[in-house]
Design a protein around this nucleic acid. Structure first.
Lengths: 150, 150
DNA sequence: TATTGTTATACTCTATAACTATA
DNA sequence: TATAGTTATAGAGTATAACAATA
């Protein structure tokens, strides 16, 4: 934290971490979108698909808790993934409220391909950072949002 | 970068820096919004006002370049700030296309107050990080988006 | 009562395209 | 031609409130 000669706080926009967080996030987001766009997908569907692959048989509500999103907002995403035959839903026989989710063969393939392309995109976005710096950044960021979780 | 035993890349969502960037940014954004909401403002108007205070006599197009936003999107923001008498516009006598912007007394006071509240908000969001870690994070983030600037 | 999936709705932020006036 | 400010519009991603079905 910087201080002015008179002891009052310096109040420039650039001193706020949130400002840099936002701008870096926008850069990354736009690059990711331009990579995923030709494939006809976006970041949120990719994240949902990745979580279904990681956790076969999971439910919509569980994914929302994992990704920190609202239940209302996953509905159209799942409809989209199902419409592309990347994800299948199956009613849970023991709890009729639940729809167990799983990735199809095509879904697993697409998920791996999408993630792989995103990784290539990150190579470009974070080109100025060394591997150690990237690990450090990932760790610092994780501590921010994970400290906010239940 | 982590690798699987067979040499293929590990492809979990959590390995992507962009994932953590996004989630941390959302946490910060939501906290900032809840702080600014009672004051009747938001992050972008605050950023624009801060830049006008920092650069008296600047123009709308210059602020857009500084903040990395589209000219179209600053129009309603400036109208809002002007409507609250926080910002004044004055035609440039030498170039009729330009509107020179300046903060009113009330605008300077509001800008300082808003930034000060945001700083308090950051104390909470980044509470788990030491001062050195916050500086490090700010630096790493700045290098990401500033490497993308002209 | 609580949870799941869903619908409807609204807001913020970003983006693009096209226009007018001026340089 | 290029730039400044503007309008209109669209899209992604959030958020809340309320509902029916089930537990």
């Amino acid at each position: 934290m910087e201080h002015e000669p008179d002891g009052s706080e310096s109040l420039r926009l650039e001193d706020l971490i949130g400002y840099h967080l936002r701008r870096a996030s926008i850069i990354d987001l736009q690059g990711a979108s331009s990579v995923l766009d030709p494939l006809g997908t976006r970041l949120v569907p990719l994240s949902v698909l990745a979580k279904i692959i990681e956790h076969p048989g999971t439910t919509s509500a569980e994914i929302c808790r994992m990704l920190g999103m609202q239940r209302a907002n996953i509905v159209s995403i799942l409809a989209e993934l199902e419409g592309k035959s990347l994800v299948a839903r199956e009613a849970d026989p023991l709890d009729q409220r639940l729809q167990r989710l799983s990735a199809t063969e095509a879904g697993m393939k697409a998920g791996q391909q999408w993630l792989s392309l995103l990784r290539q995109h990150e190579e470009r976005v974070f080109a100025r950072l060394s591997c150690a710096e990237r690990d450090q950044l990932r760790d610092l960021l994780a501590r921010i949002w994970q400290s906010d979780e239940g």
